[in-house]
Simulated assay, not measured.
Amino acid sequence: MSGSRRSNHRRKPDWLKMRPPSGQRFTEIKRELRDRNLHTVCEEANCPNLGECWSGRDGPGTATFMLMGDRCSRGCNFCDVQTGGMEALDPDEPANVAEAVVEIGLDYVVLTSVDRDDLPDQGAGHFAETIRAIKERDSSILVEVLIPDFQGEPDLVREIIDARPDVIAHNIETVERLQWPVRDRRAGYEQSLSVLEQVQRESDIYTKTSIMLGLGEYAHEVYQTLSDLREADVDVVTLGQYLQPSRSHLDVYDYVHPDAFETWQRVAEEELGFLYCASGPMVRSSYKAGELFVDALVREGRSVEEARQAARAAD
């Protein structure tokens, strides 16, 4: 661990300063989402990069659409999304998301969702329908999906694979020792690894995952987690600082210095062989630099190193 336990009410370090959302592009995207009654994880999870991504400072604005409502069937102690009170799926949501993506002018879109353990297929079919709706309207749009674990059921993961997104992400979230109490007990380290392994085993789709730091993990545990992910052939990994959404959520154990994040980036790419690693205090699983890497790799056909340089130039 990088420090002793500290009060989560102390002043955040300077490297965690955030830009407030602003700009015409931000306003346009927000209006389009509200008009279509759509949700984004950018807002629901209080993402610190919302202003940068929606404002489109370095190109077209990006947004991560959250499917199947704004209430989750699970109660992870790090997440700000509301739990319980599940509602019926909106059958028009896949079409509405696809139309919004085209109207906003996105060429790379991320789809994620709340967990829907209450549904017979846990929402896999709705996810797949949304992917296909976007691709049918414009096949050139790259689609990344950040999926739940679907309780590790292979047939449900396969339904996502068959819809042919360009990237399938599923977050391991933290090291094995801290899975509980960080995550809901229906989630788990081995279960998440099995989802990522299945995608690699059954498809040629890029895989991606994310790890939060600052929850009390030891350095050797982070290294072991990265090693396990590479053993599962995960292509892209992101590492970011955990920030407490409210006083009812887990405390921040430590604010990890940017130098440590840079070290983990070098370890991930140069030692362990990930195709790309975005690592920094403000990095999140849906992160613009990571999306630019995939865009350069898939759409532009660049080499891995060229795609890395393109992503970091815009980071």
Rank of each mutant, 00 (worst) to 15 (best):
P281C: 10
E103K: 07
R177Y: 10
G56E: 13
D70G: 14
V267T: 09
D251M: 07
S192R: 02
P154W: 07
G3V: 08
S55D: 15
F26D: 00
R34Q: 08
D315F: 09
F293T: 02
G123L: 00
F261P: 00
D70M: 14
G84L: 15
E306R: 09
D254A: 08
P281L: 13
N49F: 09
R164S: 08
C53F: 12
G123A: 03
E173G: 04
V81G: 02
K17S: 13
R308N: 04
Y276K: 10
Q224I: 02
V236D: 03
E103G: 03
D315G: 05
Y276F: 15
E28V: 08
L272C: 11
C79W: 04
E136I: 03
G23T: 04
H39R: 11
L156F: 08
S246P: 01
S140D: 14
R299T: 06
V41A: 14
L196T: 00
E144H: 11
R266Y: 07
A63W: 01
R158M: 05
C277D: 13
L229E: 00
V101T: 06
S286Y: 03
R11M: 11
T112M: 00
S22Q: 12
R177L: 14
L213W: 05
E28A: 09
V97K: 01
E176A: 13
D204R: 15
I211W: 09
L89I: 11
L272Y: 08
T40Y: 01
I211K: 06
R36E: 06
G23Q: 03
T207L: 02
E221L: 11
Q200N: 15
D235T: 01
S286R: 03
Q244T: 06
T112E: 00
R5D: 13
R132C: 14
A187N: 13
E129G: 07
Y242V: 11
P181W: 01
E300S: 13
A311W: 07
D184I: 03
G290N: 10
E197K: 11
M86S: 05
I147G: 05
T174E: 08
